[in-house]
Every structure is written in C-alpha cells, then in structure tokens.
Write a protein that binds this DNA or RNA. Sequence first.
DNA 1: CCAGTAAGTCGGAAATATGGACGTACACCC
DNA 2: GGGTGTACGTCCATATTTCCGACTTACTGG
Lengths: 149, 149
Amino acid sequence: MTTLSAEPRNCSVARTLEIVGEKWALLALREVFLGNRRFDEMVRKTGAPRDTLTARLKTLVAAGVLERRPVSEHPPRFEYRLTQSGLDLYPVIVSLMEWGDRYLTNGSAPPMELTHHCGHRLGAVTVCSSCGEVVLARDVRPTPLRATP
Amino acid sequence: MTTLSAEPRNCSVARTLEIVGEKWALLALREVFLGNRRFDEMVRKTGAPRDTLTARLKTLVAAGVLERRPVSEHPPRFEYRLTQSGLDLYPVIVSLMEWGDRYLTNGSAPPMELTHHCGHRLGAVTVCSSCGEVVLARDVRPTPLRATP
DNA sequence: CCAGTAAGTCGGAAATATGGACGTACACCC
DNA sequence: GGGTGTACGTCCATATTTCCGACTTACTGG
C-alpha cells in the first residue's frame, strides 16, 4: 500500500503558524517592528480587542518571540521587545507588506513606506542564498525524501 | 493637539492579512505551491475542517489569489491554481518556512527541504532591491510622512 | 449492485472573538 | 484633597467561528 491517507503535513510553515498564524499576532509584531512596544499603543494602532491582544502577546512571549519587561515600577509599566527570533520574523512582515503594496493599493501610493539604511526606499525581494537569484515559485521543488530504511 | 488617538493603521500588512491572515488560508496556499491543487488533497495534507477550507478557498478565489477551474465535467472535478498575484505570495510562505526551520525544529532536520533550480537547497533570504544587502529590521525605518497641506 | 473517490454541504456543540465596563495604580493640576 | 487622565489589563455577556461527523451528489471500476 502507498502512504494512503497522508496525515496532515507537519511542516515548518504549519509550526510557525501555530505561533504567528493569526491576524492580531502579526499586526502586534508589525507594531513592535515600528517601534511601538506598549500595550495601549498596540491596541490603538492595530484595532485589536484588548482581550485578544492580551492573548496573542502571551502566546508570542511564551514562544520566545517577544519579551515582556517592566519599564517602570511606579507606576507599573511594561514594554514588549523583540528577541532575536522575533527580529528574524521581519522577512515575514515585509513580504506581507510588499505583497499588499503591489496588489492591494488600487493604483494609489502605498499607505506606508520604509527606508533602508542604504538610503533608498525598501523594496524587499527574496533571493536564494546559494545563487543570489530572485526566488520564483516555479524554480523551486520539494527535495524528494530518502526512503526510510 | 497631536494626532491623538491614531485610528488603526491601514497598512499593507493589515490589508494582506484580510486575505491570507489565517492559518488554513496559508496552509492551503502552501499545498498549492507544492502542487496539490485539489480540494480533498488539501483537506488531507493540511488537516483543515472541510467547511473551513471551503470558506478560505472562497476568500482566496474572490481575492484573485487562486482560480477555481473545472478539470473534468463528468464527474465534476475542480482544481485550484495560483494566479500571478498568488504566485507572488511565495515569499510569504518561504519566509514562514525559513523561520520555522530555524527556530522550531528543535535540533533535528527540517521536516521538508526545498531545492532551488540552481541545484542547491533553497535558503531564502530577504534583501533590499536597491543595494542587495540582507534586510535586517534595525536597518529599516518608516519614511516620515509629509504633512498634509 | 457495491465500494470508493471527489467535492462539497449541513447541523449542532464547542471554542474564540468582540466590545464595553470595570479595576488598579499611579501622575498631574488646581 | 479631588478630579481628570493614562497605562495595562481583566471580566462578562454576547456574537461569531470553528470543528467534527454525517450526509449528498455524481460519477468510476469491479
């Protein structure tokens, strides 16, 4: 018999989405990348319900993507900071933004522009780390698995 | 007064997430990128509830990311194909996968590898289209808006 | 005729999301 | 000292979604 029913794939995409696979999680991250590290600020800038944002931030902190740290004792105030793994989610955010800029602006200018430290507007492209070529879906194939011996 | 309450940002990330900002939508896209274009196959490989997948596919088709086309009349069979805008979501998928491979494999090998047509394992990196440098969050700033006159 | 597959739809229970009010702990100002 | 405002949540009741299993339709193949 062939692998007949193929359980749900446990790939890295699925695993990653367990952590960031929800609108408010990614929008909270967007805010932190933009420098807004405080709860109320995130509520305002994302439009997320306070409860939901609380839950998402907890997940992100538990996953080690954000760190919640006190910035003042009296009054008690906190901020959420990106950890290294959090910083490494930047490509996810920018590729979402890039796509929206291309397909969802309906002719008008993108609602926000980013400037790279090279001085130019950031245009983010995904390239292959081996050959440096722009990655197109049609140029990529899943590597066949070796049979389990 | 300063822009006191700052309505939720309507940025491209938020707009994009209205379409793909949910686990099953992105996993369905992953499957299509892997070549599985059929409904039942997506159900099996993603583990999504059939209803939910139906709903997500409808959204994706409505957004023009996928196209639902008949592949047989008798019996009626359909497949979902990526449109150009759908193909351009590839960077989102690969950057999610890249991150999971880095942070969620717990020491073991990634559950799936991709091969680029250059012959090497695909390592996807996001670079600035102007200077070619790898994009790091700390090297990017939002461009200040011109004041509305 | 029976089994199987593909592509959904349906219904009802369970889980989540949402919005508004509330709580706490201050700071600022008069 | 009292009133107002901000930050960071929590709580509750309702609304919406999700989830699962069963069912439907339309065939093919034996």
